[in-house]
Write a protein that binds this DNA or RNA. Structure first.
Lengths: 237, 237
DNA sequence: CAGTGGTCTAGACCACTAC
DNA sequence: TAGTGGTCTAGACCACTGC
């Protein structure tokens, strides 16, 4: 690095204020125009700095509302047996769930095929959002084979779906195929989480099978700075 | 969505050209100023569109050189037993490795502690970069306990380290603790991969243990659009 | 209605790459 | 040296939120 760019100084300044405890977790930052004036830079420059800090996971924004200091990541095992509520309690994070929709409908070919169905077969589709420490951090879309989950839409869908699957429907021994990748949110998804379209996210796809037959596909979109996935493995050669 | 913003139209236009096959994988896009003229928009606007497509993983940039069409993601199992070269062959992707440095030195407390060592104990640190289909896509930093890998620096470090560990050193039965999170690259890392500081990346940390003792910590930084991690799991309640 | 971030323009100079 | 992306300014108007 030869010389530090202006926006990097601005970013460093804000970072210092966060680390000094002047701006604490969840607190709102000064508005962009205030930052411009305080630091005598153009607005584009201030925004560059904010975007930089956003990429680094230090701050996040609510669409057209403001910039906030990010909370620490949520530690999460995608191969977990128990409900995610367990992990929240364990790490003393408050986790809330809101049901957005639950319907029977035909969905994308990709999902349908994974479920081993022909393309026009309807499935149960459940969409929920979840907050961690008061911030919407996760969007969940779950797809269930209709024939394996009779009466699903009449169940309580605001709690642990993991428990519902194992206790009410009796699917206890399950195998998982998990995919994790980087992505960004489309209009719909962003709207649900109150953030801007195109925000970076971590995508988790989980195909749940019982006796070799895939019964559920779960799709999770996490805000990119909100989560760390932890997995254990064995390796023998 | 009420009305489409200009930069979204620009992004859509470029996306169309990619999907139409006019711009093929690995090809360079027109320069930013050319795009401005072709589409009659300001440069800031053109850049917004490019950043958007970059976030979505459709294009990437080489620092100060240009914008390129991204190749498809590399499918990768972080719990894998075999060398990553296996997976490359399986998916017919060309994978090359370049050793950047191999030294014995003291490293961060976090790493040292994970390895179960006291804070000033030196370890072997191996840094490599890997390309997929000709694009630098992955930066690897591996840390080895000195006492478990005698003579490591004299070995061939340009090939499969997985094989080296199991065949030469005889550590066959290993357990893994894996962490996956979103991050972005610092100056050093970005320089190695020829990209801009702050580019988004997927971070994979792998702690490798034998008989309950952690012997290796591997840190991988993947370009965010270059990889999808796939894991299998069992879940019994 | 005031204030926020989101979008946008028309310029400018700089650091670096490729030739 | 010509051309690229990277940084930067000083404005402007718009869409939306919260009061």
């Amino acid at each position: 690095m030869t010389q530090r760019a202006t926006y990097q100084s601005v970013a460093a300044h804000i970072q210092d204020r966060i680390e000094a405890g002047e701006l604490t977790i969840g607190r709102r930052l000064p508005s962009e125009r205030q930052l411009c004036e305080q630091l005598q830079v153009s607005r584009a420059n201030a925004r560059d700095a904010l975007h930089h800090l956003e990429n680094r996971g230090l701050i996040y924004r609510l669409n057209r509302i403001g910039w906030y200091v990010s909370p620490p990541v949520f530690i999460y095992d995608p191969t977990r047996t128990h409900s995610i509520l367990h992990e929240a309690r364990q790490h003393q994070r408050s986790l809330e769930t809101e049901l957005i929709s639950a319907k029977r409908e035909t969905v994308s070919v990709a999902i349908t095929r994974t479920l081993g169905l022909s393309s026009q077969t309807p499935v149960y589709k459940v969409i929920r959002r979840r907050s961690i420490d008061g911030r919407w951090a996760l969007l969940e879309s779950c797809y269930y084979r209709e024939d394996a989950f009779e009466g699903l839409l009449e169940q309580d869908l605001g709690g642990s779906l993991t428990d519902l699957v194992s206790r009410h429907y009796g699917y206890r021994q399950r195998s998982l195929n998990i995919g994790i990748s980087s992505t960004c949110l489309n209009d719909q998804q962003a709207l649900c989480l109150q953030i801007r379209e195109g925000s970076p996210a971590l995508r988790l796809e989980r195909a749940v099978s019982v006796d070799g037959q895939c019964l559920i596909v779960e799709m999770e979109h996490w805000l990119h700075d909100a989560v760390e996935m932890r997995v254990k493995g064995e390796s023998q050669e």
